[in-house]
Amino acid sequence: MQLLINGLIAGSLAALIAAGLALVYGVLGVFNLALGQIVLVGGYATWWFCQVAGLPLFLGIPAGLVTGGLVAWLTFILFVKPFYKHHRFLPLVTTIALSMILDGLILLLFQERPRSILPGMKETMLLFGGRVSSEQLVLIAFTLVILFGFAYLFHSTAVGRRIRAVVQHDHAAMSLGINAPSLHTLIFVLSGVFAAAGGIFIGIDQNLTPTLAFPITIKAYAAIIAGGKGNFWGAIVCAYLIALLEQVVVGIHWFGVFYIPAGYQQTVALLFIIVFLLLKPTGIFGSVSRSA
């Protein structure tokens, strides 16, 4: 049970970030390699609002989310928009450049030492035989609320219908009077907000260090590829799945004989994805890929 809770905690974090990535990739077909840095920006901004500016948590978190969205918006305007129509691989290069710039800026602004939004120990309680803190419960719930909120927006509102239309065919949607370019911006900003939420999650549950960004990006990509590229819900499910796998790999006494050394935690989880993709290259939830 404890492993399940651990997986849920780690999975919620991964899901938030993968969701943002899947959205951008699914709609724009653009790889954003500065995503991990936007995660950190969101986390560090919240840390700053709460620990330095002294705002209470319920104000600091929205402020952090807004900052994440703002940085994502700037990213889109400056580093993606001028390029992605020419070739969808161009933003790959520009966002790598941005990721380096942001890495440097984060180091300059927030220094090397680790930062925690909620320092100290969290009170834990026993729940179904597992230990979990109230903060972690809130974080898990918060993630679900965000994801379900988005599901509602996506499937039951006019905006969602437009987004789905743009996903299916950009130009056709435009010819029907949907303002696709502004939807692209909206989606990019949304992914930034998701990412910032992930950063706040890390800052509350663990601590923020300037070097976290790249590993975060890699894991999010693993989730969207395993989930079937461009498949929003597939990416989220896979993010949870990979996180759970990572916990189970080291937490279980395999066949009652041995433990897998903790150093192989990530390797084994990613190996699983490779094996899976060998068997089903379109991803767990991928349909037969569309050729344009």
């Binding site: 404890q2 976290l212 916990q247 903790a262 150093g263």
Partner: peptide, 13 residues
């Protein structure tokens, strides 16, 4: 146990 450098999730251990 030996973990990857930079690991911050030790919950399962």
């Amino acid at each position: 146990e030996v973990v990857d450098p930079g690991t911050k999730d030790y919950r399962s251990l």
